[in-house]
Design a protein around this nucleic acid. Structure first.
Lengths: 239, 239
DNA sequence: CCCTTTTATAGTCACTACGACTATAAAAGG
DNA sequence: CCTTTTATAGTCGTAGTGACTATAAAAGGG
């Protein structure tokens, strides 16, 4: 902040980019938009846009989230700032600094085309490649961050509808981490953590298909998990 | 990224702000600079400055770190991007988006005045108040982030000189977390984590003062801690 | 209608990690 | 020499967890 009056300040364009995740059929999906113009015309990219003069990056991200998903109320959705990408050459046209966010949706409206008529689709996370700009990197960082936060926060409920079964909650962990979990152990752990989930009093049950009906739960009031629910360690994970 | 050619883009100033931590006499200290000009003239602030047209925020942060601390080689120091602060009114003069970083120094050179002749000092973390702009918030976020990373990474060694005792390493945890730890348990935990520290082969010992000399250790090759070294829980911590 | 399949839930067992201790060793200071 | 100080070793009980077995309650197919 001291250089204010010493160095001439150079103007930058500031954008937000969003990694919007959801679960479809038990698999992690991410929202992509197709670029209509150069550079990277025809390639897929993360949704995003410019930060306007009167809004913060968080406000811009939430506005874009509404525009791109077509959801009318995005106020309750989880939106988390990831980090800022500022390599000088990350956009060939001009100097663009982008603040990246991760967003989690419980259900996936079949979004097609935000306000700007660009094509949009939900892509299975594993099938995504060759994104425009540095969006591949941003997407990978986003998944790693979400996976890490599942370990020590109650974030997983943000992927679930207001009422959900423990099986659905477990699918969130399995989809984001890409590993299978032992069901009885997962259940024991979740129920032993006060405030993670609370049972729906009406003893309501949901029939998803076959098998014994599962009890329904709601997200609890806790934010952190103590102790954490660690990913199975394949002998040495990245920091 | 799709709005590129739709909305006129508004230029922003982009800066970096640094929360530079070190340990002095076992207490956490942070590097502050005194502002010479309005706004907030005479108040203390975090060091920082503009991102130049040809550098990333990371490069700018490392450059500023060198300028402000007077260190000639800052290439090995730990520098971590925290988050970006972009509230429209965070700077009364103009629209400034700031990318915040945390940096950790093993030893504290008696820094006074960076390149721009501003006064600088190491302040005990607990005594810091009334920082300029939103720097108080940034500093609190930085400490929380560093404290959290101590739990599940080997970051603590970044506060230590190349060779250190387990007592010194423990002081890092105690200073950042603000809690006392049981020494035998801390020792057991650190030594049980492969790759956290490695013993110095020469069986060298250091005499800091009184008491039995302690064995010396070096930082190991591991980056993550499995399982994590959790802070003592004062019954419910923030996420 | 029975029997298999599927999913949910309950419970067991051994082992690890950890908090709270006690005990011993090796230095400095008076 | 004895106290103080710091480092290191070890003990004990408990919580947490991975791996596993068992039971309950539904659907579907013959």
């Amino acid at each position: 902040m001291d250089g204010y009056d010493k160095y001439a300040f150079e103007p930058f364009a500031v954008t937000v980019d969003l990694a919007v995740f959801t679960l479809r059929a038990g698999a992690l999906h991410v929202l992509l938009v197709e670029r209509g113009r150069e550079p990277y015309a025809g390639q897929w990219a993360l949704p995003g846009g410019f930060v306007r003069p009167d809004e913060s990056a968080e406000s811009a991200a939430r506005r874009e989230l509404g525009e791109e998903t077509g959801l009318t109320d995005v106020s309750g959705l989880h939106l988390e700032q990831l980090r800022t990408y500022s390599e000088p050459d990350r956009d060939p046209r001009m100097r663009v600094v982008s603040v990246a966010f991760a967003a989690l949706l419980p259900d996936a409206p079949e979004a097609h085309g935000g306000s700007d008529a660009a094509q949009a689709r939900w892509a299975p996370y594993g099938s995504v490649r060759d994104l425009a700009f540095d969006h591949g990197r941003i997407l990978a960082d986003a998944r790693e961050r979400v996976g890490a936060k599942l370990e020590y926060t109650c974030l997983a409920t943000a992927f679930c509808p207001p009422e959900f079964t423990l099986g659905e909650l477990q699918q969130v962990y399995e989809a984001v981490w890409g590993t299978a979990l032992d069901r009885p152990n997962f259940r024991r752990k979740v129920l032993a953590t006060p405030g993670f989930v609370e049972t729906v009093p009406g003893a309501a049950r949901l029939t998803g298909g076959r098998g014994k009906p599962a009890a329904l739960y709601r997200a609890g009031t806790a934010a952190a998990l103590h102790p954490p629910l660690l990913r199975p360690t394949p002998e040495g994970r990245p920091a």
